[in-house]
């Protein structure tokens, strides 16, 4: 087992355990914090794949996003005891539906992974990843990049409007 393998197993283990923590925590704040750890683990795997930039984007975006998520959690469940904010739903139809969806999802993913032929590229990404990414985003894909940006901007405005409400004249 090489050094690389040990690191991978550690990272994957942390990610999986944290993901379990997200699902199993009874307190929604704990869930959100476990989610941070999950994302950090994933970012670590990105680093190991020599995709440092993507890993850092993962950290930066999700750090902010998760804190906002926590705030929403606090805002929405403030009246309940913190320990009871993330309970399992006890009704049978919900459990059935959830189980069905997750089995389907797992099967689909497993199939996809099994049947896909993973091509091994001889090209070393190396240190030039960021430059290449920049070239792609501002070159061939500039239109879709800008469209996505505008879409997000509109979403932000929409969210602000929803939160603040429009004042009646």
């Amino acid at each position: 087992m090489s050094l690389n393998d040990i690191v991978f197993i550690a990272l994957a283990g942390i990610t999986l355990l944290a993901a379990l923590g997200v699902v199993l925590s009874r307190n929604i704040i704990h869930s959100a914090l476990f989610l941070v750890l999950t994302f950090l683990g994933v970012a670590g795997i990105y680093f190991q794949l020599n995709a440092g930039f993507v890993g850092l984007v993962q950290i930066m975006v999700y750090a902010g996003a998760i804190s906002v998520l926590i705030i929403f959690a606090i805002m929405l469940v403030m009246d309940v005891e913190p320990d009871q904010t993330n309970l399992f739903n006890q009704s049978t139809p919900t459990i059935m539906a959830g189980g069905y969806v997750s089995v389907l999802l797992a099967a689909g993913l497993a199939g996809a992974i099994w049947f896909t032929k993973w091509p091994l590229s001889a090209v070393q990404v190396g240190d030039q990843g960021v430059e290449k990414l920049a070239g792609m985003l501002l070159g061939p894909y500039v239109v879709s990049f800008e469209v996505a940006a505008i879409l997000l901007l509109v979403a932000v405005f929409g969210a602000i409007l929803l939160a603040k409400g429009v004042e009646d004249k």
Partner: peptide, 16 residues
């Protein structure tokens, strides 16, 4: 190779 970006993104974690 992404040193500056590393600094910014790790720094932003302290919010949490």
């Amino acid at each position: 190779n992404v040193g500056l970006f590393y600094f910014i993104s790790i720094g932003s974690l302290s919010t949490i």
